[in-house]
């Protein structure tokens, strides 16, 4: 589904992701872990097409298409979804209006009819239960005045509504209490299907107690330096990231 080869990404002239390789197949859940500054968010943002992140080398194929040649909106319309680490506040635009616009833009791109307000509301209300959010959430401006946990749950709501093919969650678990964490994990597990894939970018092993990954990768200094099964996450939790640093240093 997603094939990243030799990818390098820079921000403001500074290279953050270096020669990164990653293969994600349909049905898989990948956890990308790493210490702060290792390039996790840069990788996530670059895959979503953030214009401030300049790809300086390598290639990315998504569903057989050249992902890097696609605009952010085309990536979204092709089923790629990024749950933001820091969701953006949009004053004056209700969650409902925002989601209606997103649903219909994506439907239009797939040649489907536009949904009217009632259809959208119905769909949104079902998904609200999934993230245990009140209906009043829909009429509030997007993320404005939301608590940290509400913002993260709102990302999961969007994900649930848009039903992406490839979901990338950028530290969605950070700063969540245990209840919110379970809600987020549940949202991710609901999305888990043989034809979907999920990349969980995270600093901690916590969420992986609820979402079992197929693969765990350690990102260090812009490179994936170690890949293994879910047991790697537990090892990272137990031993921290320093031993990785030593190991990488030893190899280099």
């Amino acid at each position: 589904m997603l094939s990243i080869r030799d990818l390098s990404v820079g921000v403001e002239g500074k290279t953050i992701v270096r020669h990164l390789n990653l293969e994600v197949r349909a049905g898989e859940v990948h956890a990308v872990m790493g210490p702060n500054g290792s390039g996790k968010s840069t990788l996530a943002q670059a895959l979503a097409g953030h214009p401030a992140y300049a790809v300086t080398g390598g290639e990315v194929t998504y569903l057989g298409r050249d992902l890097l040649a696609m605009s952010p909106e085309d990536r979204a319309r092709a089923g790629l979804f990024l749950a933001f680490q820091y969701p953006i506040e949009i004053p004056g635009v209700s969650n409902a209006a925002f989601l209606k616009a997103a649903i219909n833009e994506q439907r239009a791109a797939r040649g489907l009819d536009e949904l009217d307000a009632m259809d959208v509301l119905e769909r949104l209300e079902q998904k609200l239960q999934l993230v245990e959010m009140d209906k009043s959430f829909l009429s509030r401006p997007v993320n404005e005045g939301f608590s940290g946990g509400e913002k993260k749950r709102n990302e999961i709501l969007q994900m649930a509504v848009l039903e992406p093919t490839l979901a990338i969650l950028d530290e969605t678990d950070s700063g969540l209490d245990i209840d919110a964490l379970k809600i987020v994990a549940q949202g991710v597990n609901r999305l888990r299907r043989p034809d979907n894939a999920i990349i969980l970018v995270t600093h901690y092993q916590r969420i992986l107690q609820y979402v079992e990954p197929d693969h765990v990768h350690v990102l260090f200094d812009g490179r994936i330096v170690k890949s293994a099964g879910k047991e790697l996450a537990l090892e990272l939790e137990r031993r921290g990231y320093d031993w990785i640093r030593d190991e990488v240093g030893a190899v280099a």
Partner: peptide
């Protein structure tokens, strides 16, 4: 970018944000 990452093109994103600005 946030709106574009949800599938709105640049023009639609700007319109929605502008409407949001006057909504108050």
């Amino acid at each position: 970018f946030y709106l574009r990452s949800r599938g709105l093109d640049d023009t639609a994103a700007r319109r929605l944000l502008t409407l949001g600005f006057v909504r108050e």
